[in-house]
């Protein structure tokens, strides 16, 4: 994964925790900063897409690797 400012390990957590924790972390970040999230919940793929659309935090990248889901979100401020 490319560069990021903060990291969130949401592995082992189920809906809705990855989203809740991502939101909480993003709230403490500044506009333009990047949050890198790792999750194992397969539902998180669609959830983060939807989260991004609704909150304006841009989903820069998402991929599946080693059975984990990786996301990079750009904080909208």
């Amino acid at each position: 994964m490319a560069e990021y400012n903060q990291e969130l390990d949401a592995t082992g957590l189920n809906c809705p925790l990855p989203i809740l924790k991502a939101k909480k972390t993003l709230a403490s970040m500044s506009s333009g900063e990047v949050l890198y999230v790792t999750a194992t919940d397969p539902g998180s793929v669609k959830d983060f897409e939807s989260f991004s659309q609704q909150t304006g935090h841009e989903l820069l990248e998402q991929k599946e690797e080693d059975g984990k889901y990786h996301f990079r979100l750009k904080c909208a401020g």
Partner: peptide, 17 residues
């Protein structure tokens, strides 16, 4: 989340609505 960050989140939503 603190009250502060929550109000920040609320403020942010006005721009995304």
């Amino acid at each position: 989340m603190t009250e502060q960050s929550n109000s920040a989140a609320q403020g942010q939503s006005t721009s995304t609505v």
